[in-house]
Design a protein around this nucleic acid. Structure first.
Length: 339
DNA sequence: GATGCGTGGAA
DNA sequence: TTTCCAAGCAT
């Protein structure tokens, strides 16, 4: 049995004393829980995920229940968490698992990576944490820790850098405690070796850390300069009946807020708009990673007239019940509260 | 390789 | 206020 590297042992030891051991997906770390949590945690912080994970689990405790659900039920539970493709992929993958994998999360790298929404790092997390197979993970935390400790230059997502990081991550993964190590290295990055102001003072591997010794902690990992974020404006049409009900339509399966329910956007949803009383709501800003969205909205009072002229398919519902049954993006939630 | 995809929190 | 970006993946 080959010995662990000093790095690996130090991370494991740090984790036992300082790591988070009480996250809702850790006891027990069933394959389903690990898969679900790892998916929710993609580009999303632990504090945000906890509530979503628990709500999702209580509605869909296992693969069969998720596989049998409608996409709308899944999206409703995911609404607000962002990156909605994850929810669609999760649902699709559950159906595949139910049909082709006896209702279980597969336990081979090949089978896992063939599923939608599971890439190499998520597959590695499932294999190591849920199945105790010594597979490497390489998420943002691990990349940051390794780039600093081993002085790896270049953008962490460039092909050249990944070619160094993956073998390194694999060589550091222990055979015996791989499931603890996977949690440990991610926690270490999330809690101690943070992007800003890492706690080097308390770091057990400070003495072998390239970035600490070279005093370039803030410079590693190198960050790619971002293009300036473009501005965009979206215009929503809020159709409201006398009884207060509002009209929602499902967004297309591709693009932003895919498959979620929202007010008609863009062109007016009816040709006889002039016949109705309208009210312009105050615009507000909605920030995304790749856009600065100005959200504008016009409230159209429909009254009791014939509604047949609405061009879109959709549904009428009471404003306060919307979020309980349909998945709606944040800006729509905000508009509804303003009515 | 570059781009699209959400949201909330921190500085 | 603005900027940055957090347990990535798919196209």
């Amino acid at each position: 049995m080959p010995k662990n590297s000093p790095f690996t042992d130090a991370i494991l030891s740090w984790y036992d004393r300082n790591g988070r051991h009480d996250l809702p997906w850790q006891h027990p770390a069933s394959p389903y829980d690990v898969w679900l949590s790892e998916t929710m945690l993609q580009q999303t912080q632990v504090a945000t995920v906890i509530d979503y994970f628990q709500r999702f689990k209580s509605k869909f405790p296992d693969i069969p229940s998720l596989a049998q659900a409608s996409l709308d039920e899944v999206m409703q539970l995911w609404a607000g968490l962002g990156y909605y493709r994850r929810a669609k992929h999760l649902h699709e993958a559950a159906k595949i698992m139910a049909k082709k994998h006896s209702g279980r999360v597969p336990s081979s790298l090949e089978d896992l990576m063939a599923l939608p929404g599971i890439g190499q790092s998520t597959a590695g997390a499932i294999l190591s944490i849920a199945y105790q197979k010594p597979c490497a993970i390489l998420d943002g935390n691990v990349k940051r820790v390794l780039c600093r400790h081993y002085g790896i230059r270049g953008w962490p997502d460039s092909t050249l850098t990944l070619k160094q990081l993956w073998p390194l991550a694999e060589s550091l993964t222990p055979n015996k405690d791989c499931h603890r190590y996977a949690q440990a290295i991610m926690d270490f990055g999330a809690v101690l070796c943070t992007r800003n102001k890492p706690n080097c003072q308390a770091c057990p591997i400070q003495k072998s850390c390239y970035a600490f010794l070279q005093q370039c902690i803030e410079q590693l990992p190198e960050k790619k300069p971002r293009a300036k974020v473009p501005e965009k404006t979206l215009h929503f049409w809020i159709l409201q009946r006398d009884n207060g009900d509002i009209f929602l339509t499902q967004r297309p399966p591709l693009g932003i807020w895919a498959s979620l329910w929202a007010f008609p956007e863009g062109e007016p949803p009816m040709s006889n708009l002039a016949e109705y009383h309208k009210q312009t709501l105050s615009p507000f800003l909605h920030l995304l990673t790749h856009f600065r969205l100005t959200i504008k909205a016009t409230l159209v009072h429909i009254g009791k007239q014939n509604l047949a002229e609405i061009k879109l398919a959709g549904t009428w519902c009471a404003p306060h019940t919307v979020g309980k049954t349909l998945g709606v993006p944040k800006p729509i939630t905000k508009l509804i509260t303003q009515l």
